[in-house]
Simulated scan of single mutants.
Amino acid sequence: MLRITLIRSLTVVPVLFGISVISFLVIRMIPGDVISSIMGQDFGDPAVEAEMRRYFGLDMPVHEQFFTWFGDLLRGDLGTSMRTGQPVLDEILQRLPSTLLLAISALLVAVLLSIPLGILSATRRNGPLDAVARVVSLIGLSVPNFWLGILLVYVFSVSLGWLPSQGASEGGGLLDNVRYLVLPAVTLGASLAAINMRMTRSSMLEVLNQDYVRTARAKGLAERVIMVRHALRNSLIPVVTVLGIELGALLGGTVIVEQVFAWPGLGTMVIRGISQRDYPVVQGTLLFLAFFYVLVNYLVDLVYTYLDPRLRSGH
């Protein structure tokens, strides 16, 4: 187990290095830079522009800019925003709670919808409920997040006036916070619920066909006991694995939903950084999100290895 843990830990390093290189280069492939974003394309004083490029280090060759940034990164410094002058890490930590709240809420929505529906669909295979659940999951997989978000805003905010359409609660109570959170969480959790429902259904069907389930029925155990103690516990292992991976992906996947609902999270910060060519903000945020995603995948991989002895033995 220790050997496997060390091997998986070493694989994280090249992944993060590759992500740092890609994030550094891709943002610089976009036409323009922070100087032209601040001053406009028609600014007429080349001397001031050259001085600002020197101040931000943009006059250096790209490889020198990368090694300077990467050296600071190894010391835990993600850089300073060219727009606000604030450390990028501080800005990330300010917005991280909002993104985590949205991601965890969306995951909770997905769990509450998908697991019961997946179990019912598997236990009533080929029945009317199974057919309806599969159609609903197919719709959930097919509908884009941004379109679903706009539709929910139109129905529940514009037409009915039940929920706020944008923003987050500032200093309100629990109920007020929940009202702002409902629409973005449902929008983000819908596609996850569809994926997990199908995963739960297929996993449950596989377990129900195992010999130990048939043996339990032959011994006369109640169907409820068979489902809870035998089928459900074993069928949820792959589902829990997928949920853990989705939590890591959700942090980066909230970008579009945050834009639709003007949610003050990391996604909004990345979009703002791209539009303003704020290189340190974009590079630092993308690397942070990638690190979190890789970390969650790494932890899920270790947990799954611990739960399944066959992976530890190499079979």
Rank of each mutant, 00 (worst) to 15 (best):
L192N: 11
M197G: 08
G284M: 03
Q283M: 07
N297Q: 08
I226H: 09
R229C: 00
G172R: 10
D176C: 00
M269W: 04
W162T: 06
W263E: 09
L183C: 03
R214M: 08
N196G: 00
V296T: 14
D301L: 03
G273A: 15
S202Q: 10
P164Y: 11
Y180K: 04
R233F: 06
I237T: 13
V225P: 01
G161S: 11
A218R: 01
V239D: 12
A194I: 03
I237F: 08
Y298V: 00
S165I: 00
V296E: 06
M199E: 06
Y279P: 01
M269G: 01
D211L: 01
V207A: 07
A194D: 11
I195Q: 13
L192D: 11
V213M: 02
L188Y: 05
I271Y: 10
S159H: 11
T200M: 13
A185M: 05
I237C: 06
A216V: 04
V296L: 14
A262Q: 12
E258D: 07
S169N: 10
G267K: 02
L160N: 04
Q166A: 08
W263D: 11
M199V: 09
G161D: 13
G244D: 14
G248A: 04
I245Y: 15
M227A: 13
Q276S: 12
V255H: 06
L286H: 01
V178N: 04
